[in-house]
């Protein structure tokens, strides 16, 4: 298949493309899903992170 002798290697070749296609399809289908409001814990974490980064 595809000029590749071993079916296991051909399978890996196709699975690479399939996994990439899965990522693209899943991402597009759920493009607008999963949004969450920024909560205080998120902001507090980000402020601390920024401060530590500045110090560094």
């Amino acid at each position: 298949m595809l000029g590749i002798e071993d079916k296991w290697v051909a399978l890996a070749y196709l699975l690479c493309l399939a996994a990439s296609a899965l990522c693209i399809t899943y991402g597009l289908l759920r493009w607008n899903q999963g949004d969450e409001p920024v909560e205080e814990a998120d902001q507090r974490w980000a402020e601390h992170e920024t401060r530590e980064s500045e110090e560094l």
Partner: peptide, 18 residues
């Protein structure tokens, strides 16, 4: 920020690693 950004990043990430 949220799961939505991760969903969207999948589109680019899956292509990039390939």
């Amino acid at each position: 920020k949220s799961g939505r950004e991760l969903n969207r990043a999948l589109v680019y990430g899956g292509t990039f690693i390939l």
